[in-house]
């Protein structure tokens, strides 16, 4: 009996701790939400009140209009989708090459690819990479926003790891059934790896949506900028830091990745982590 009581007590303590932790972690987002509905007058009332007197949607409209948010979101979406598709598809190809084929130079090529993990060119080598964009006349285009990111060491490794867990017999069986290497990849491996691929795709989407430094440098006209850069513009345009408007904009920019993350979290966590950690 005593043991059961102790267990219940423990559960209660854990629950309370969890509630506090969750509350603290989510507080910035929650407070941003309440701030985004405050009227300009309420933003600076002192002492501050957490809840606005009414739902003041104007902030969202203002944030949307003042930095051309529709266009910024469209650009971010295009960029993130293209990068997601490219990274994932090319990653599947190269992962498959490294997992299922023996070929000359495979370990050398693997090392060359692996090292790029430590060479985020869009950060470390922004100056020369920018020069490359200039020579290609890609400044201020979708090319510059997407093409340099289409290869991914991370995706390659994740896919390689996952493909290696698929029993060799399946490939042999497929070969006997007359499927070529590509047939095997598309008809058997890819369907078998749906959750890993889905997880990788989500990672790549979030990564691309959240890029900041590179879009800041390679875009200059308002109709090519991305949503993240919109944050910087909002902070500057809102000449007196009307936090109501800035938070409304922030939430709009945050929403796509957050919602996507919540929607497919199971896929994401299970697909990636189990592939990465087990085995």
């Amino acid at each position: 009996m005593k043991r059961r009581q102790r267990k219940i007590l423990r559960t209660i303590i854990v629950e309370i701790a969890l509630i506090i932790v969750t509350f603290v972690i989510l507080m910035p987002i929650f407070l941003a939400l309440t701030m985004s509905f405050k009227t300009p007058g309420e933003v600076f009332t002192y002492p501050p009140k957490i809840f606005p007197s009414k739902f003041y949607f104007e902030n969202y409209i203002k944030a949307f209009q003042s930095v051309n948010m529709g266009r910024l979101m469209l650009n971010s979406t295009i960029m993130a989708l293209v990068i997601m598709l490219g990274k994932t598809i090319f990653g599947i190809f190269s992962g498959y090459a490294f997992s299922n084929f023996k070929f000359k130079g495979s370990s050398l090529l693997f090392a060359i690819l692996f090292i790029t993990l430590f060479m985020p060119a869009e950060m470390i080598m922004i100056v020369p990479l920018f020069q490359v964009m200039k020579s290609l006349h890609w400044i201020n285009t979708y090319w510059a926003l997407t093409v340099p990111f289409l290869a991914s060491a991370t995706t390659t490794f994740l896919m390689r790891q996952h493909f290696m867990t698929v029993p060799k017999e399946l490939e042999d069986a497929a070969r006997i059934d007359g499927a070529g290497p590509f047939g095997f990849l598309f008809k058997i491996l890819v369907p078998l790896s749906k959750s890993t691929i889905g997880g990788v795709a989500v990672i790549n989407f979030v990564y691309a949506w959240n890029l900041y430094l590179w879009p800041l440098i390679v875009t200059n006209s308002d109709n090519m900028k991305t949503a993240q850069i919109g944050l910087r513009m909002l902070m500057n345009v809102e000449s007196a830091n009307d936090w109501g408007v800035i938070m409304a904009g922030t939430l709009m920019i945050l929403a796509p990745t957050l919602l996507l993350f919540f929607a497919v979290q199971k896929l994401f966590v299970q697909g990636i982590i189990t592939t990465g950690l087990k085995e």
Partner: peptide, 25 residues
């Protein structure tokens, strides 16, 4: 819920905390 900050960009984290830490509001 706790995993949520994963989806947040460094810039968004910046605006959120700039707001929470700002002197006037």
């Amino acid at each position: 819920l706790v995993f949520a900050p994963y989806a947040i960009s460094p810039a968004v984290a910046g605006t959120l905390w700039a707001f929470l830490l700002s002197p006037a509001a």
